[in-house]
Design a binder for these strands. Sequence first.
DNA 1: TAATGGGTGCACT
DNA 2: AAGTGCACCCATT
Lengths: 533, 533
Amino acid sequence: MDNYQLDQDLSDLTSLFHNNNRATNDIKKEVMDGNTILSNLLMTPPISPSAKRDIASSGEQEEKLRIPSSNVKTMVKKKKTYNTNKNKVKSYSTPNNISNALLKDQNKLIHLDPVPNFKDKSEIKPWLQKIFFPQGIDIVIERSDSGKVIFKCKSPAKRRNNASIHQEQESTKPSSSNSATCPFRIRATFSIKLKKWNIVVVNNSHSHDLKFNPNSDEYKKFKDYLKNSDDFDTIKKFEELEYRSKLNLPINPSIIPCDCGLTSEIQSFNIILPTSKVCGAIKVQKEKKNARSMVSSQTANKNNKLKKFNEQNILKKSTQPLSTSNTSPSLGSDFIDNTNILTTGNGDDFVLPILTPDYAVHKNNKINPAPLLDNNLLPLSNNTNSNDNMTTDLLEIDFTDIFNQSNTLSKNVRAGHYNSNKYNLLEDSSASSLLFLPAPTSLDFGNDDDLLMSSKLQSVDVSTLLNQRRVSHSNGDNDELSNNLDDINNLLSTGLDDLDKRWEFHDNLQYKNDDMESNFTSSFLNENFDFLK
Amino acid sequence: MDNYQLDQDLSDLTSLFHNNNRATNDIKKEVMDGNTILSNLLMTPPISPSAKRDIASSGEQEEKLRIPSSNVKTMVKKKKTYNTNKNKVKSYSTPNNISNALLKDQNKLIHLDPVPNFKDKSEIKPWLQKIFFPQGIDIVIERSDSGKVIFKCKSPAKRRNNASIHQEQESTKPSSSNSATCPFRIRATFSIKLKKWNIVVVNNSHSHDLKFNPNSDEYKKFKDYLKNSDDFDTIKKFEELEYRSKLNLPINPSIIPCDCGLTSEIQSFNIILPTSKVCGAIKVQKEKKNARSMVSSQTANKNNKLKKFNEQNILKKSTQPLSTSNTSPSLGSDFIDNTNILTTGNGDDFVLPILTPDYAVHKNNKINPAPLLDNNLLPLSNNTNSNDNMTTDLLEIDFTDIFNQSNTLSKNVRAGHYNSNKYNLLEDSSASSLLFLPAPTSLDFGNDDDLLMSSKLQSVDVSTLLNQRRVSHSNGDNDELSNNLDDINNLLSTGLDDLDKRWEFHDNLQYKNDDMESNFTSSFLNENFDFLK
DNA sequence: TAATGGGTGCACT
DNA sequence: AAGTGCACCCATT
Ligand SMILES: [Zn+2]
Ligand SMILES: [Zn+2]
């Protein structure tokens, strides 16, 4: 999965070492003489991946280092590791509370509980999509069988449409941010004893930004499913989500019901930017267990048993999973009695995340906008999406209250409310999670040169979001206009409070925008956010 | 895929560096002081994969080494290449002549012509399997849509079953010879205009040995297909092929009819070992064309057209491709008038390849036997395969004539007949095929230290085959017996003729065998090959 | 279906 | 030699 990246790592580390050797050539001389082989190894210009594999795997790094002969088809000892997640700390989350868990438990297993009593394997994905689309995570099935479904997230950076002709430059393609490298996984396994599906978020981290994309194929299929399920409530909620996304308004995940039966009221609207990058994830080290008595693998026909079970019992595989059921996954009556449920009590003091707007900060300090927002962009036009049969008039939604509310409550975050939440039910694994950043009790910007606003758990208020939104709304061309941040900062100054240094960008920061968008931003701000002035 | 291994490499290299630092601590002292950052970096015990990713992707390794911040996305330019095969030299082959073409045209596109008028996409694979199973190529579909099917070969080296318990050593797995790396491809594309399927062998080379494996899943499915098709002729032929394979007898590809309508009589039985490694393949270098006028990609909806065509016309997709048809792909009446057909005339002087027995020679001079031949091994037992309903009694087959014939005719190869064949219809592209080895006019063994008997086009006779067969028939355990080659050579001396040096193995050559197999070999030889004495 | 990890055929996009 | 969603597999502990 990650081999290109790791390959890069290896060669980069190699050249690090190499440069290190050269830079301190005199001093290193004797060292190199004492380690001729290693040095030679690092001096040879291109080490092929396979050659490097051979080098690294040649023995247990005893005393002598030897250069492997080429063309050797060495049998590389390679051991699959199993049960690597057994050592991970478990956390539990209700589906409604998943956004908190995703933020906090980045190196834990997050058990989703409760889950509906799925009648069919195909019902799991839409149910999860209801939860994870608002989190900006577009899930697809990576692998499945009769008793297991592994979901991964379908990250963006896909095939680009070449709009311009005579394109001398090749279409750039991010080499390390495709979905294959993203470690995020959700595992659903069916327990025949309990006759229920267990759902666990396995690797809660991402190699890419999180952004709800209403144009994705998966989302379209998901909407079709909702229509076929006559789940009008969810349809309505997702229309709101969609609209907010196109306006880059803050997204409140709680607007989507999870159908888990626990519709705990969400009372706090504090806004938190979720981390968009892998930040706290520490994969559990794979332990080498010495040979213990091996059980004979008599479980070979387990899948067959499971199939038989499915045939004889409730689960019936449908050939068209997206159009099968009027059985919308739902309602408390479907639930199995589960005494293991750990809930967060009454759900008070939840800190809900919202999604970062459509942008990505790159190392070279360019802000790359996400591709193409369609022409539904303008909020007050009648140019709504082509989805017919919708029951809600989106123009009737009033976002002002939400903004006021979040703007107000975000101050509670700074006042320390954030740390008073009680959703961490198990012990914190901070001992093993060296990279984990605790939730901030005060906002803390501008002290991170390269990261800009990502990579940290950050509490912001609506003005920040609007500011980001402005930056993010370019349409993907290469024009680079220098915008006047001061205007925006002045406009939003009443909302900045004590957060003055927030938008002191790097000197050489460049970001993209276009005129239409700028105009729209200004007028939109003027029309809708008088309270900021 | 390989990230665990590369991960290992990285940490191994890290600890190499680390140990290096410690072992030469005094000298390194200053170096480390001058590179505090790097050293610290390497000193921290567990570098998480993501952290390593971040480290490696930090810029272009200029002069200063700095610790990069996380979350940097580097954009790597990567260009898809299209029409890479346009520059390849085309050759044409009838299906019956494919074995020649595969041997000779290793860096050409081999157009198969004629092909039947397939009623359904699903008919293509079985038809190709009839051709390529006898070549030792187990094809699977890599990708398909309504107008295209890409086949690749499913190479061996799969998941091994662990026979022994308490296996301290991990299951070894060849790291570079899996099917993903084998370049061999067959492309079938449907032409709407001609209303026919065109089939082209695209990359005629392999990264592995070619060996017909009757135990493969694909072959079992293929046999099921044949049964459902009531194609008794083919069933019979493949039973013979299967039996020969298990006895490691030479396989004559012509025994399988191709149903192309051209049943040209095969008259020559010269035996040639096909190359088992990538030897003559030169992949066409992907050319960078400077910006030329790009044609607008208006072919986006071609697939839709094809689908519509398929719906309106003959092609109907069946949901169960292996059990659909009594329409066995067959017979001249199915053919479309095709004026482009290039044939080989009367098919005289064809040099037919046979497959190497079940072995693989590795660089370390160990002969690794192919996995597990089942208990059908003994030729004279009634312990035939569990496939019922077969119409032939395999025990009635007399192999002696075949051996005599091939033994006799193999001398024609040495006499120069081999080069007199006329099947190369297009101009030879020897200018661009630097690695292509012309067909040998005399046999030539023992001058290849490492490759032993692979990587070259070689003509052998039956005694060689028997000898190889003996070596190959171990059953995969790790015992290494030293066998007495002299006995075999004496036994077969009358067949060796002028080929004396053939079995002078390398000194440190070790090969595997077991007692049962040795006994079987001896008795089998004694009973059936009196003519050799 | 105990839990967990992975390979890969192949059709959809 | 499209990339990938997904399912049918199998592996180890
Ligand atoms: Zn992800
Ligand atoms: Zn191959």
